[in-house]
Design a protein around this nucleic acid. Sequence first.
DNA 1: ATGCAGGCTGCACTGAGTGCCATACATTCC
DNA 2: GGAATGTATGGCACTCAGTGCAGCCTGCAT
Lengths: 250, 250
Amino acid sequence: MSSSSAAPAAKPPMRDALVAAAFRLFSERGYEQTTVDDIVALAGVGRRSFFRYFPSKEDVVFPDHERCLADMTAFLAASGPEHEPVRRVCDAARLVLQMYAENPAFSVQRYRLTRKVPGLRAYELSVVRRYERALARYLRGRFAGLPDGTLRADVIAAAVVAAHNNGLRSWLRSDGQGDAGAAVDHALGCVQREFAHPRDAGPARPAARVTALTGEQAASPADDVLVLVTRRDAPLWRVVRELEAVLDRA
Amino acid sequence: MSSSSAAPAAKPPMRDALVAAAFRLFSERGYEQTTVDDIVALAGVGRRSFFRYFPSKEDVVFPDHERCLADMTAFLAASGPEHEPVRRVCDAARLVLQMYAENPAFSVQRYRLTRKVPGLRAYELSVVRRYERALARYLRGRFAGLPDGTLRADVIAAAVVAAHNNGLRSWLRSDGQGDAGAAVDHALGCVQREFAHPRDAGPARPAARVTALTGEQAASPADDVLVLVTRRDAPLWRVVRELEAVLDRA
DNA sequence: ATGCAGGCTGCACTGAGTGCCATACATTCC
DNA sequence: GGAATGTATGGCACTCAGTGCAGCCTGCAT
């Protein structure tokens, strides 16, 4: 990942200096109140150099997304037919989470920034869209030939991104405390359960099970059936939490 | 905002003149090669007036989305508990399609434009995002209190938008020929079947019936016991949705 | 030292977007 | 009738993001 594995690294220190100077000024006086001239002045470099490293002022806020997108593309390109497609794109999404989790403090700072600045929200959207398109492109390939293949690919890609962002945001909102992966794993798990295996052949079994159960309880092999008993006046959220706990164990 | 009720509405002809001039120049020499000064010169108005009607140059490309978003918000706000939530957001999405279908020629022209210009694609993304947030906000309200309510809301909103755009784009790509609604209806139908009405995958429907079969509920409702039977691999969302439906009936 | 290459800087320019003020026209109040 | 007020517009000057160009400085090979 970190590009050249070897020692030298010595990447462009200028890039990092610009990012550091930019974020310091952004947090001090805000994004829009900070001009590019302010940034380069603090970093002690020429104005022209800023735009050599960052195509636009917004790009300095997302310095590592380009690399992450390349990683995701490579990850998907390295997939084989043995991988379950939905599972695969969920794992690809986790690469983004990983990038955020590597620098919690930075990620939280950036999150606060993008929340406040509409221009940055719009820019982040275009970044996220590129991830989504990468996922959708992969799924389109895997679903090629299936009826509604591209539709299915687009919808699943959008759902995966939405779930990932939902989990990611809840982690960011908690200032990066706790396990970043837990919320995202849970969210992606929901989507995966919803979409994985192209099971068009619906079960239609539970209805029969129920009659069997109500009629002769002992006869049913309850390995794939879950029976929950609760008082009707119990708070719904508690019932559901219980349900969730049981289902997650599976 | 008003423009309300009555027929004439005294629309600003200047706004329309600016849109017409802009699109004429955009199609002649391209978006980026057209400056705001070019537009106002062709429209015969002052430069300052352009920015009075459109906050930015990009806005002139999407002159009616603000109104459409307001319509959608009103539509969702006017919803009641009798509406099935997923069905409702699908119908809300159809409002957007309707707007596109009202001016096929204009919509196709804009589609070609946004395809070519990255800046416009990014801007369109931010517009679409506002629709998605409106849908998600509504769903969050409907799913309030349920575990993973916001997650479900976000995922479904994203899926609905993705499906809508998939259908819309296939219509736009065909130069506005054929039925605009057909493709979108089909796409939204797929999403609706996936997320609403768990009839096909069928978890948890018998909850009410099982309580009846236990036979102890009629006498003392407070002590009523609820028995829920479901497949273990059924999506939790659906189980919860059914649970909610049963409990709401009480 | 000389020549060369690549990164860096300064400078001038375009174009989007904003704030301020002046003008033109319609409305209302005296 | 005329003054005051409100609103839509035009004009001007300004900030700032982003770009093209030319020069400079440093490291490096000959």
